[in-house]
Design a protein around this nucleic acid. Structure first.
Length: 546
RNA sequence: GCGCCUGUAGCUCAGUUGGAUAGAGCAACUGCCUUCUAAGCAGUGGGUCAGGGGUUCGAAUCCCUUCAGGCGCGCCA
């Protein structure tokens, strides 16, 4: 319903002020103000040098002549407060929309804002040197939900995981496992100073021993990181998060892409030598300082393969590249965007979404997260304790750039009261209504044709409110996609469930009155369609029974 | 010192990109299962939107400033 209003309003406004690009539409705080509302007249007051009230009147009168047949759409259009235009829709129009929703299902809910644009989302990308911890889980939940959201919004989405399998950290993992392995054989072998000390190191060392590989550093390093990567993949799989592409850092080296990328920048004169090192002129693109690519000792910095990696992303022809990083890497953004620009693209092509820190508590006490010290709360531990759906919901009921505090003990005790069940329960309840309807052989079961066959005049006020809420979903969905904010869907679903449960409690859907039953079944079906779609985006199951 | 993020109910967080009288969940208390699922429903209480100044028709939202917390500022990854 927002879509049609937007068309009508935009046309009316443009006929008055042709340069207007868009109009704002919002849901009024106060129900009595109408179903949707626009502050457009107030926004235009200044440029047009007229009073908002006058502009609002003109907009309304232009709407009458717009040829949209607005008398069939709106019950009421009025001006209120400092110049809001408030719109109240006709019941018959809303019921028509409801029928469309039921008929078209998800197609009715989506809006194609992506128009086939290709977007790559890179997320998690944790070093394969230890199990995923809860912070990675947050990135995983966000990345997966964002990918679903953009996919539903008409983008072609690729999900990628970047594997840091070439650097010092992986070697350190290998050395740690090697030391453990030697110790298992009873040898007195020194553990690397900064080595990884988690229990999993010993597990890998034991596996290595059993599989009787030759204990050479390279062999053991590869063995260890492969094991670790497998474990990460398993964690992600159990979290219900999947990837389309796994980009290995080593492969970038092996295929010579690192050298190529640097040569590229050299050719464009963005590389220079100083103090025996090779530098990238990041300051030319707004970064604070220039950045070293090759160190004095001839080794590449971490930045070098990252340049190659992002060049590769750009070369793949994505219209938009999204990196999801932990907020502790925020200082890295200007330098990466400098690279994008040096390669000849606008820096907007790379969007970095920062996921803020997850502070972990156990019974009120902060848990120091350190992979090397081996103390941290793993994603797996949390999934095992409270379930993947609850864990995802935990992350997706927050904006990604807000700091998040998770007390693992509290999370466990509260998981039974988690809002995720509230939403899922609404879905399950509707399913059992339909199950009962099926058992009582109510005629809806022939399918869609029958479900849209209802008399909308039978809906009471409470039902109309729910219908309006349902018809708002496409707007919420669209805005969530544009803002890259899946959490908006989460909150909407809670609100919708919060309307359904009381309704369910007050009214029997299936009754002796066949006409009312048909109308209510239609309403339930529509709610179910929306709940399913929203939950699908969040990556949360929509169970039929609970 | 510089930069980024955050500060909203006891706790955890939303707040439609500047809109109308500030919103949920949890926690607390009181009721409700012979019904399509009580993982539910009905009700009660709870606020200096960190403080101060500014911008304008209008600010939790934008700007300045102070305070508090977190995170960065390597030829580490």
């Amino acid at each position: 319903m927002e879509k049609i209003l937007r068309e009508i309003l935009l046309k009316a406004v443009r006929s008055q002020e042709s340069e207007v690009k868009s109009v704002e539409i919002e849901t009024p705080r106060e129900e009595s103000f109408g179903d949707l509302s626009s502050p457009a007249a107030m926004a235009l007051a200044k440029p047009l040098k007229k009073s908002p009230m006058k502009i609002a009147e003109e907009i309304i009168s232009r709407m009458q002549d717009s040829g949209f047949g607005i008398q069939d759409i709106f019950e009421k259009v009025d001006i209120a407060g400092p110049g809001f235009i408030n719109f109240t829709f006709k019941k018959s129009f809303l019921c028509g929309e409801l029928k469309q929703l039921i008929k078209q299902k998800e197609a009715f809910l989506r809006e194609d804002v992506g128009r086939g644009k290709r977007v790559q989302i890179e997320f998690v990308s944790a070093n394969p040197t230890g199990p995923l911890h809860l912070g990675h889980g947050r990135g995983a939940a966000l990345g997966a939900a964002l990918a679903n959201l953009l996919y539903e919004a008409g983008y072609k989405v690729e999900r990628e995981y970047y594997i840091n399998d070439a650097g010092r950290q992986v070697k350190l993992l290998g050395m740690s496992v090697l030391a453990k392995y030697k110790q298992l054989l009873g040898e007195d072998y020194p553990f690397p100073e900064d080595g990884y000390r988690g229990d999993y190191i010993e597990g890998i060392a034991k596996d290595f021993k059993e599989e009787k590989e030759t204990p050479e550093p390279d062999v053991i390093t590869d063995f260890a990181y492969q094991k670790m990567l497998d474990a990460i993949k398993k964690d992600l799989e159990d979290f219900g998060v999947s990837f389309d592409s796994w980009q290995s850092e080593r492969e970038l080296y092996r295929k010579g892409e690192v050298v190529q990328a640097i040569d590229d920048l050299k050719a464009k004169d963005y590389i220079y030598e100083k103090d025996g090192a090779l530098w990238f002129k990041a300051t030319g693109f707004g970064d604070d300082k220039d950045r070293v690519i090759v160190k004095q000792d001839g080794e590449y910095t971490y930045f070098a393969p990252d340049i190659a990696y992002h060049r590769k992303k750009v070369d793949k022809g994505f219209d938009e590249i999204i990196d999801i990083w932990g907020a502790d890497h925020h200082g890295y953004i200007p330098r990466m965007q400098a690279v994008i620009q040096a390669l000849g693209y606008p820096k907007e092509n790379l969007k970095v979404l920062l996921v803020q820190m997850v502070t972990l508590l156990r019974g009120g006490k902060p848990v120091q997260m350190s992979k090397r010290a081996g103390e941290f709360i793993t994603l797996r531990e949390v999934i095992d304790e409270i379930g993947e759906d609850t864990t995802k919901f935990l992350f997706l009921t927050r904006r990604s750039d807000s700091h998040l505090e998770v007390d693992i003990e509290v999370a466990k005790t509260q998981s039974a009261e988690n809002p995720v069940y509230y939403v899922q329960y609404a879905h399950a309840r509707i399913c059992s209504i339909f199950e009962k309807a099926r058992q009582e052989a109510i005629g809806y079961r022939q399918g869609v044709k029958d479900l849209t066959d209802f008399n909308g005049e039978l809906f009471n006020d409470e039902e109309m409110k729910i219908i309006k809420k349902l018809l708002l979903y496409p707007m919420i969905f669209k805005n969530a996609a544009l803002a890259h904010e899946p959490h908006r869907i989460t909150f909407y679903l809670q609100e919708l469930a919060g309307m359904f449960h009381p309704y369910y409690h007050r009214h029997k859907v299936i009754s002796d009155d066949m006409e009312i039953t048909k109308a209510r079944l239609a309403l339930c079906e529509a709610i179910r369609i929306v709940l399913r779609h929203g939950l699908k985006i969040l990556g949360v199951k929509a169970p039929e029974k609970m």
